[in-house]
């Protein structure tokens, strides 16, 4: 909790709540998220360079399946317990099946500051997990409707800022290898925590702006925003154990599963399921789940990973 990056986030929330004038210019926010995405991609790419790509195929398939499954669990819950309409339930389900790079970055910082190692190629799994939930979300909302412009959806997913920067970083890291990346390492890896601190400051301000709308949507969204990531973390951690990951890796996969998207999915849903209320899904993913994961979830998922590893690990 006393980690300065977490304090930056809390400071951002505080500044937002007292309606301070504090806000980063959007170009700076873009630059910070671009740096984080490239750094995460590069880290994964360097690791990929060290191992044959084919050995990763089972992991990629398993994580893709998890991305299909999580929204299918969330959807009936949102429909029945939350009494949400089909479009809103599908859109929120897609948010929770996909991932948040911000949460992932905080988890990296958490692992690094405690000297816990993890499978660094997990950045590749981050990209894989971005995609399936969007497809499931659209199918849940629309069925196999002819109205869905799949070409536009595919473009939105693959050419969207998040996926393209992660893939670009992965490719550059993979091609250049550890020695090739070394000259730019001080910028991308040395400054990682500083960039993350500023990013979290702005995320705090944005989170605070979503807290107000929570009151409108009631207790269910808060309960779902905490309950769903806890369930997803259990699925992610179990998958990590099955795949034979280290404790750090299990914990990272749990964090990936538990995080909810607030960039790629909102953009894709806005285009594909416009009747879904974007404020509702963002209130849940940004107003509840993001702060929960950053403040409480990540250490909790690590603890879960340690317990599962002791009980079932190889």
């Amino acid at each position: 909790m006393s980690d300065p990056i977490i304090l930056f986030f809390i400071f951002g929330v505080f500044a937002g709540l007292v309606r301070s004038e504090l806000r980063l210019p959007s170009a700076i926010y873009d630059f910070l998220s671009l740096t984080l995405l490239l750094a995460i991609g590069l880290k994964g790419g360097i690791e990929l360079a060290k191992q044959p790509f084919l050995t990763l195929a089972p992991q990629i398939a398993a994580v893709f399946l998890m991305g299909l499954l999580l929204p299918l669990v969330a959807f009936p819950l949102l429909r029945l317990a939350g009494k949400l309409n089909r479009a809103d339930a599908a859109s929120i389900a897609a948010h929770y099946g996909s991932v948040s790079v911000g949460t992932f970055a905080v988890a990296i910082a958490y692992m690094n500051s405690r000297g816990i190692s993890y499978e660094e190629h997990i950045s590749l799994l981050l990209v894989v997990l971005e995609i399936p939930a969007i497809l499931v979300g659209i199918l849940l909302a629309r069925g196999l409707s002819k109205q869905t412009r799949w070409g536009t959806v595919a473009h939105e997913i693959f050419a969207g800022k998040g996926v393209i920067l992660l893939l670009g970083g992965l490719a550059i890291g993979w091609i250049a290898g550890p020695a090739g990346v070394e000259p730019i390492a001080p910028f991308f890896f040395g400054l990682f925590k500083g960039v993350l601190a500023l990013f979290l400051l702005e995320m705090g301000v944005i989170t605070a702006s979503k807290l107000g709308s929570l009151r409108r949507y009631g207790l269910f969204i808060v309960l779902f925003g905490i309950g769903m990531p806890l369930f997803s973390a259990l699925i992610g951690a179990s998958l990590g154990i099955l795949l034979g990951f280290s404790t750090g890796g299990v914990s990272m996969l749990a964090t990936l599963a538990a995080s909810a998207s607030y960039i790629a999915v909102p953009a894709a849903m806005r285009i594909s399921v416009p009747e879904a209320n974007p404020t509702l899904s963002l209130s849940a993913s940004l107003g509840v789940t993001f702060p929960f994961n950053v403040l409480v979830g990540i250490p909790l998922y690590y603890d879960l990973a340690v317990r599962l590893q002791t009980a079932f690990g190889a």
């Binding site: 806000r23 959007s26 926010y29 702005e202 944005i206 404020t279």
Partner: peptide, 20 residues
């Protein structure tokens, strides 16, 4: 041009993608 403002759909601060 980029724009910011407030209307029936709430405040749109322009700070990040989904809000611009």
């Amino acid at each position: 041009t980029d724009a910011r403002g407030k209307g029936s759909q709430g405040q749109r601060g322009g700070g990040w993608d989904a809000d611009s």
